[in-house]
Design a binder for these strands. Structure first.
Lengths: 203, 203
DNA sequence: TGTACATCAGTGAACGCGCGTTCACTGATGTAC
DNA sequence: TGTACATCAGTGAACGCGCGTTCACTGATGTAC
């Protein structure tokens, strides 16, 4: 997606279209977002998005790739920050994953939707591999430190990913928390993520 | 949704429309399903679905309510089967949740989509409460047996739900498993679910 | 048993709409000489 | 510095399409008497 001639004027319109799409996705969900509505939100011709993204799948794919790259960066940072404590690195990654989904619901809405994006897009795939590699290495470091021994490495990676992803998804749905109370979504997700991390940590 | 006169002929068309929608959702995703396409698949007039479901949201809501009721049944059954072993009951519920998502991808596609269904539909909400109650009671029984002490009950319930839901979602996406190998999706999900259960069990 | 009537599931024509996509174009920016 | 040309971002009119929804209707099923 989106190969552009870098020697030429690289205006803000592409950026603005992506931001508008991200906002609309967060506020109204994917079913309400069209190329025309995005163009309308930015105030340009309805044909403009096709210039940058070819088609609707292109727009969503570029947005998903951008989000996935940011997520990979965030996970990498968390693992690096944790330094010599790999279990802390994995825990912090989980917390950061959930926070990412809350801070960027627009990204999260399309990042894992195979009916909306091209999973084989090189940029998207590269970031996906990067994020998964960080997670895999973090798990391997935990195992080297004695955590989760006796389990195959990829199983533990999937377990960690699934746990993070589950909290992020249900948190976005707004179904977590003490029944019939209106707690702050972020703090609920934080409590759940923390409890989940503790469960892993105590192994 | 769908109050109908039970004294009258209660044909199969409603059933067939639901089944066709479920199949299309599983195969092509929500963005490809329309009232007209469902009617086409069944071979009836495009206006027929409106008779049973009022509108598109109605169709998806009825389908989601049906799926959620089935899931609540399944979870209840697992807890009952486990009898005196509450941790086994919770574990079996997790496995069953993931299996449900794999056996009924069409249900799973709409069951948690607030942009597609009416979350306040009485039937849907009632099944939701039922499923969550089963889970809550299972967690309470586990705590009574000494598991997960020191954690608030709702946090543990959310942790369990998020874990199940994460595996189900990522499994449906097809991203779990040993990297670059084409393992059977079901067995991968089973391995991950099992590892997750073990993690909880060992607390 | 027979006739007249009520119900209602499903039809099919018609509507207006927003969509993605195409395409000839304009006009500003940058390049060659 | 000045002119002629090339590039390309973005325009706006036009297209055909599938959609959800409406509505007068048909015809089969069941009910009243």
């Amino acid at each position: 997606m989106s190969e552009r001639n870098p020697t030429y004027y690289d205006g803000d319109l592409r950026r603005e279209l992506l931001d508008a799409a991200k906002l609309a996705l967060a506020e109204q969900g994917a079913s309400a977002v069209s190329l025309r509505s995005v163009a309308r939100a930015v105030g340009v011709s309805h044909a403009a998005p096709a210039h940058y993204f070819t088609d609707k799948t292109g727009l969503f794919t570029d947005l998903a790739a951008e989000g996935l790259a940011l997520l990979a960066d965030i996970l990498t940072e968390q693992v690096e920050l944790a330094g010599d404590d790999p279990v802390e690195g994995l825990t912090a990654s989980g917390v950061a994953y959930v926070e990412f989904s809350q801070e960027h619901p627009g990204y999260f809405e399309v990042m894992f939707r195979r009916d909306l994006i091209d999973l084989n897009d090189p940029t998207y795939a590269e970031s996906g591999v990067r994020a998964l590699t960080v997670l895999t290495e973090a798990v391997a470091a935990c195992q080297a430190a004695g955590w989760g021994r006796g389990e195959e490495a990829w199983v533990l990676t999937d377990v960690a990913w699934a746990a993070m992803h589950g909290v992020a998804s249900l948190s976005a749905l707004g179904v977590l928390g003490r029944p019939a109370s209106s707690q702050d979504t972020d703090s609920v997700a934080a409590a759940v993520t923390r409890a989940l991390s503790d469960a892993f940590r105590s192994r």
